[in-house]
Design a binder for these strands. Structure first.
Lengths: 330, 330
DNA sequence: GCGACATCTGTTAACGCTAACATGCAACGG
DNA sequence: CCGTTGCATGTTAGCGTTAACAGATGTCGC
């Protein structure tokens, strides 16, 4: 920086002013400084800047170590938005579960880095236990978690999506609609089941048949084998597309035609859903927008330093494909 | 730090020595300092440390913005290994392509952060154009790219995997083995095709039938429709599992039985592969190990500051399932 | 018992940047 | 024509840490 100042014939402070877009620099001076920066290939030292300002323009992103469609897509959405806003993203992945200890470790790491704020992708019920240990002195946005907590949140309205799926099936004349739920440690699993129940309750139908999976196709397959035996069931709402794939496979193996005998609806709209056999009716979530909006929430907290807890909800939408049809028979 | 020093009744430099494990600190003094640190909840300021040492204990991770199985799994593997080694990971995602401009931007960002080194997940042929613009003053490890370049690399042996898949089909008696390739902009697509060709050439067979997809199930479906018409083809090696799913769907629709009429092999061993209809024979890659090993390579460069370009290759392995069978008929 | 040496601890000066204040100079009004 | 104002720029200090050197204390040999 001193070198740049010397080349431009100004003081280092003027260079700093140019770098930070300070208004009171004469255009001619600014141009000379910029030329010197260019000539010397100067890049400001962010560590020094962070030291003196106390801000790092880095934000922490804590996520589960999962390749599941949702969290990964959200991660990229956040990274892109952060980059466009001039922030760096420091990622810390937790293991396969969120416990207070590992979450605290992750936050300690990020706090040591003096991150401006933290975005937490916390889709597990265990996050409800872990969240109280979150520091209140650091701006935090929780994505896909914390339904009642004290933090700003951004979520997709899982309940509404599940309800839409269920109502779609009811509209097709189905009366016995089973559910293949996600693992109970995932909040989304609960919310989707709740949406399914709400949809059924509105139509005066019973929510008796619930099978529990673990998001994998394998578990869906096992649920599908059980469903194939339940002749009264004419429709299934499956809590994610991967499990729906397993359900389709099992029903196919057992000679139960989809959608003629049983309708199947998934959740997520992964890229492959359109190419399942048959192509899958499912609920689409815009994870990319979720990422962008949750960054906005964090930046809003940083800018205004207001402590208003904002809750941002994004609406999912039903995608109708070939795995659902009107109920046949009486 | 000054506060800690005061509480412990020592100078701030002694605190620094305790923090950095300097040997010449009396155990009693060390204990007092540690107690003071604990009491005050002191956390060292990494920005200040980075400023004075010139090292940030952060490493940059540049990756494509993709939810594809491989890159994401590699990312987590690297993050976990970095965390265990006491490093932070700053992620920069490129768009959907690697061009010299965006790569240079990403590196400029990371260099501004004074990262210790960069790991680049660069599985595109365009990375061959972009890589020469990489800085040589920064330790770099390239994952899944740069077959002939000047950088340390960690890769899965795609050719060997493809060859194993092809030889498996040849061993089952197949003589006309088609290939559904990945998009030409991906290095892995070329390597897998090369492995297929090499396997065929060794057996004196022709590699005539190549269809090109884009990794998606949709493109696999279209390739599958074309394959269904080619009655001479009795086996297909598909360059990834998602496309293989599309192929299976198309063959099923057109009434071509798998594996009775046509055998299908995929690549990647995604979690769902076992639950395709029929379950998919495929080539398993250990992306997690890939991540760990590539971090090791980077740390090795940092420690020894040797400029020996290491190339680390991980062997994939064939997983036999139900989508392949011995050729029927004459 | 006194200098030489090892061991532990303290002092000072950076690292590169920004904030706060100080200065110089032009424009302006009375 | 001079004090006041406002703009552009320079000067100084300090962010929290480590490196380099300086000092204090104890230990040992002769």
């Amino acid at each position: 920086m001193t070198d740049v100042a010397r080349v431009a014939g100004v003081s280092h402070q003027t260079v700093s002013r140019v770098l930070n877009g300070h208004p009171s620099v004469r255009p001619a001076t600014r141009a000379r400084v910029l030329a010197a920066i260019e000539e010397l290939g100067y890049r400001p030292n962010l560590a020094a800047r962070a030291l003196v300002t106390g801000r790092s323009r880095t934000l922490g992103l804590v996520t589960l170590e999962t390749t599941l469609f949702g969290p990964v897509t959200t991660l990229y959405g956040i990274e892109r938005a952060a980059r466009e806003a001039g922030y760096f993203v420091s990622v810390v992945s937790l293991g396969t579960a969120i416990d207070p200890g590992s979450l605290e470790d992750a936050l300690a790491r990020l706090r040591a880095q003096r991150v401006a704020g933290v975005i937490l992708i916390a889709p597990l019920t265990s996050s409800l236990l872990a969240l109280p240990s979150l520091p209140i002195d650091l701006p935090v946005v929780v994505v896909e978690g914390d339904p009642d907590g004290a933090f700003a949140t951004a979520t997709v309205d899982q309940r509404a999506g599940a309800r839409a799926a269920t109502e779609h099936l009811i509209g097709l004349g189905h009366r016995v609609i089973a559910h293949v739920a996600g693992p109970p440690e995932w909040l989304e699993a609960h919310q989707r089941e709740a949406g399914w129940r709400a949809g059924l309750a509105d139509a005066g139908l019973a929510g008796d048949v619930v099978l529990v999976g673990d998001w994998t196709a394998r578990s869906g397959y096992q649920a599908g084998l059980a469903l194939a035996e339940m002749t009264e069931v004419t429709a299934v709402f499956v809590a994610n597309d991967h499990m729906a794939l397993g359900v389709l496979r099992a029903l196919h193996e057992r000679g139960r035609a989809v959608p003629e005998e049983i309708s199947v609806v998934g959740f997520d709209d992964i890229g492959e859903a359109e190419y399942f056999t048959p192509s899958l009716t499912t609920v689409h979530q815009d994870f990319d927008e979720l990422g962008r909006r949750s960054l906005d929430l964090l930046l809003c907290q940083l800018d205004s330093s207001n402590s208003v807890v904002e809750r941002l909800v994004i609406a999912p939408r039903l995608i109708e494909r070939r795995s659902t049809a009107a109920r046949e028979g009486p």
